[in-house]
Design a protein around this nucleic acid. Structure first.
Length: 230
DNA sequence: TAGGCCATCTGGTCCT
DNA sequence: AGGACCAGATGGCCTA
């Protein structure tokens, strides 16, 4: 069993997510004890590549393309009159970009309706991604550029795997304590490392749950004391 | 200036 | 038929 595979997973996604330069180098060289705090600090530094890049809303509005449609004014955009589309969509079925639509018969109103629906769908997707960003461990600050979509997904995936491993380690620890017998080999300190990292484990290391709480948290591993209870 | 990231449009496919 | 989903194309903004 590797030492803290969760850390490898976490770093793996971080690398796959396209982190570069110092950010990647720091994460690669991060010790087991420090990787989570690094992940958080990189939310303020390396994750944001070069610190402040402007808030997402600023970027969104600065980056409007064909349509000045963005989340800040989502509702009003639903009433989009299509004036902007007038530029992009030619009645003859040609686009400014030179593309020729394959369905010239397609009515303009139908096309606009489809476009609006697709925008809504993508905004829902982005809302879900925002929700995901809010629960994975990295710095959330208005001055910090938020994680990219791919980084969010990869980070979340590995965070889940890491938490699952931490849970498994905790179950093993509980079973060990409940059995009251020594293990053939002492638990390596590194395997318990996640529990000492408040950034990773929901319970502070100094406030590990008491016996009943453990049994509540991990129903599958009742201790002898709780198991004897009626 | 190149590359990354993103929003949007679009046509195709599948499902209800 | 209409909606959901998907992937390709396009163009804008930002950073190194």
């Amino acid at each position: 069993m590797s030492v803290l595979p969760g850390r490898d997973l976490f770093l793996g996604t971080t690398m796959a997510a396209g982190l570069q330069g110092k950010a990647m180098a720091d994460l690669k060289s991060a010790t087991n004890d420090a990787y989570m705090s690094l992940a958080q600090s990189y939310g303020q530094s390396a994750f944001s590549f070069s610190s402040v890049r402007g808030t997402e809303s600023q970027r969104a509005f600065a980056g409007s393309t064909t349509l000045d449609y963005h989340a800040q004014d989502r509702d009003s955009s639903e009433e989009h009159t299509g004036d902007e589309e007038e530029d992009a969509f030619h009645p003859e079925g040609k686009l400014k970009s030179g593309l020729v639509t394959k369905k010239p018969k397609e009515t303009r109103s139908l096309r606009l309706s489809i476009n609006a629906r697709e925008r809504r769908r993508m905004h829902d997707l982005n809302d879900a991604l925002d929700g995901l960003r809010s629960v994975i461990p990295y710095a959330h600050s208005p001055s910090v550029r938020k994680l990219s979509k791919i980084a969010t997904l990869l980070l979340a995936k590995n965070y889940i795997l890491m938490q699952a491993q931490a849970l498994e380690e905790m179950r093993r620890l509980v079973a060990y304590l409940n059995q009251g017998q020594t293990l053939s080999a002492p638990l390596p300190t590194t395997t318990l490392a996640p529990f000492a990292q408040s950034a990773v484990y929901p319970f502070p290391a100094t406030a590990l749950p008491t016996c009943p709480e453990k049994c509540t948290a991990f129903p599958g591993t009742l201790c002898k004391h709780c198991a004897d209870k009626p």
